[in-house]
Every structure is written in C-alpha cells, then in structure tokens.
Design a protein around this nucleic acid. Sequence first.
DNA 1: GTCTATATAGGGATAGAC
DNA 2: GTCTATCCCTATATAGAC
Lengths: 248, 248
Amino acid sequence: MAEWPKDTSFKAFQERWTLEGEPLWRGVFEMHKDKMQIKNANVAIANLEKIFTATFKLANSKGLQAMSLRDLSKETGISMGGLYAYIESKDDLASVIEGVQRQYIDKVIGGLTDENLEPIDCLRAIIFGEIYMMEIMSPWYYFCFMELKGLSKEQQQFALNVELRFEDTLMESISEGVEAGLFTCDKPELLASQVTAQLQQWHLKHWKFKLREVKTEEYAQFVFDSLMACLGAQQAIAESPVKLQRIS
Amino acid sequence: MAEWPKDTSFKAFQERWTLEGEPLWRGVFEMHKDKMQIKNANVAIANLEKIFTATFKLANSKGLQAMSLRDLSKETGISMGGLYAYIESKDDLASVIEGVQRQYIDKVIGGLTDENLEPIDCLRAIIFGEIYMMEIMSPWYYFCFMELKGLSKEQQQFALNVELRFEDTLMESISEGVEAGLFTCDKPELLASQVTAQLQQWHLKHWKFKLREVKTEEYAQFVFDSLMACLGAQQAIAESPVKLQRIS
DNA sequence: GTCTATATAGGGATAGAC
DNA sequence: GTCTATCCCTATATAGAC
C-alpha cells in the first residue's frame, strides 16, 4: 500500500515520522543543546524527558504560573540548582516548549504542501496529520495553547501566524476544489476556521471525548466528513480509502 | 414581529434580556453583596465595575496568576486595602466571576428549553443566543475558559457539566428533527461538539475574526448553516426568517 | 468607606561545596 | 554533573489610622 500521506492510517503516519519516545527527546536535545550546560547526550536526554514531562503534568493541571520550580524539582527528583543546568529560566522553559512544537508542526504539516496532492487528498492529509500529531504531542499542544499569553510578544505572533498559514493552506485546497467543480463554498475563511476549531477541541476537550469513548481516527474522519458535507461533496466521502468501524 | 427567541436578531435579544451596562453590574452586586463589606449600592456598583473590568483587562492579557493585586490596584485606582472591602481574596474574585457567568448562561440559554420550539428554531435560537451572550460578556467567557484550572475542583466540575448539558440540549433537538424526518445524522455527539467548538472559537479567537472583519450575526448564521448542511437539511436554510447581507 | 504601613510567606535565581 | 544553603524580591493579606 502507498505511504503517508496517501495512506492516512495512523500506522503509516508513525512509520513516516518517527516522533514517539526516545527519538522525540533526542530531537529536543538537538534543538536546544547550545542553551544548556550539560554536554553528555545520554544524561541530558534522560533528564530533559523528566523535566518536560513533569512540566506538562504540573503546568497542564494547575497552570505554569502556579507551578513553582520547587514543585518541578520534587516531581523530577532533580534539585533546584540542578534544574538550572538544563534551563536558563522558567520563562525559557516555556519558550523552548513552544519553539520545539512549532518546529515539529512545520516539518510534518507544512511539508504536506510539497506533496502536490489533489484537493480532497490534501484536505484529508491535513486533518488526519494534525490529529495524529496531537495524538503524539497532546500535552505540547495543550501547553502552547494555554500558556501562549506568558510568552514574548514575538513568539505570540509566531503562533498566530502558524494558525493563519494553516488556514491559508486549507483555503487553497478548497479553492482548487471549487475551480475543479468538486466543491461549492460561500465562505472559505469561515469553513477553514471551523476545521481549526474542531481540531483544537481534540486537545482542549480531551476529557469530553474520552468520556464518550471517541477514537482518534473516528474523530479525524468525522472532521473530514463534516468538511465534505459543508463543501457539498457527498460523493467524496464514499471514495475515502480508509474504512473505519462506526460506533452505532 | 415576534419577540426573541422567535426573532433571532440581536436587537430582539437585547430587548428581551437587558444585560448591558449598569443592569449587568447591578446584577453582579445582587449576586455577591453578602460577601462584601460595602453596603451602599451605588458606591459598590461603580467600584465593582471598575474591579471586574480591570481584572478582565489584566488577566485576559497576561493571565490571572501573572496579574498581581498591586497591578489591579493601579488599574482601578483603588488601594490594596480598599480592594479587600470588595473581594475576599484573589481566588474569590475568580470564583465570583465564574459563578456570575454561569448563572447568566443558565438563565438565558437554559431557559430556551421552556419555550417548546420546533427543532430547527430551537437550534437556531441556541446558536444565536450563545453568540449574542458572548457579544455582551465576551471577556467573561474568555476569562472563565482560560482560568478554569485555577478554580476549585467543584467549580471546574460545574463548568464541565454546563458544557455537557449544553450539548445534550443540542442533541435532543437533533434527535427530534431526525424522528420528524427533517434531518439525517450518524454521530449526534460529534456534531454537537462541532457546534460547541465553533461557538467557543468566537471568543477564543476573536483576533482572527476581527482581522477578517467577520460580523457577529454573519458568524452565527454560518455556524447554523454548517450544522444544517451536516444534518442534510438544505431546505431549512432557505426558510431562515432572518436575512443577512452576505459579504462577498 | 478608603487609605498607608506592615506582617509573613513563598517565589526565582545563584554561589560554591562535593 | 548535582547538590545544599542562601539571597533578595514580590506576592497576598491584614491592622489600624483617618
């Protein structure tokens, strides 16, 4: 079978992008090693994982400002002084998280435009790709959304631009589809924002989908089906190459 | 012409619910006067408005934890000691905001179920009603969303229940419509969450809609049209009693 | 009803031992 | 590379004058 992004299964995505576990933390280390004092990669990677994981646990439950570095020290088992060998400051920690996340999104989602996909395939790949990214980096997404206010104005602007560019990509595929006679669409901007809204809910309201036992691929498929319905493209749904079991 | 909620214009909404300006702050005073030392209503109302407005300005731009009571004192022109005549503590301030907002939503949106509206009219009223509430209480919504983590577990649970009940109401109207043969819908839960997602975006991403010059009623109409498209109810849209100018 | 002055705690960050 | 001990600041909250 074809590879990601032609094959939009989670398995194909995982095989194309190796982002989980150790490779993820190694990537984080590479991105920010100039800023830290620790030179030994193995030591650094293990502790970076501890620090970031603990930060997500604490900050995502009570907020970054409410999390003290003493809390973080207890949770990681690393002393206060020790932490400062890995981060420049508390603000720097948040800044690094946003930077890493943005870079990964850019690589995985931004790279889709180079694939020259047909409008429908492109929209499907964007939606499934974002959902799969969230599956893997869920706490990163949530953190960046909730703590954006605490970052520098410059970094805030970067994040807004990512969202605008994301929607531009969606709108471009929609326009192409309209020109090809596949879709009809009155308000592409609002439709793009609808997709963004639904994707963001997947991490913002994870409690709700967990409560209702909604599966990852089921949700991505629903977002895609909704979009197709709003574009008046019923036949496209039937052509979907990925068949999912529907919960009745 | 019929009154709200039959007439879904903003004007009709405003006439039915007098929530803007002084009446709003008087309502806040009534709800929480037992908790404050100031007895003179006129003095209290004026200062409550100052305190809440300043809290929204500061907390919504840099976060509640990052806003100190010294900041709040400067912004309101009320001394540190003075503030404590109006609030019990910083946590109490956040708690009161959430409580007031929840009570208003319950009154305006929760009350819609007593109106015995037809499915399509009910869905329209819920969507337009929520958007109009946000128009008036936008900073309240944003504050409650972003600062929910800082509230008591009990209050967090209340807020989640509001969201679940809101979606139950949507699903009920959808079911009625399906039984009446008006709609078709595979996944009512996910469709309800789509509507919630779009409504929340209206306050979460106000910068984006402002940038794109999307008007309030235009947005509400789009959310409604999208829902109708996903329910396979094209004819319903044409029947819409409110005609809006479409930006081309 | 509003203010100034102050008590007390906890925060981020660093120096220097090991 | 990691720790303990400490510096210094800013936060919330209150007491008591006006």
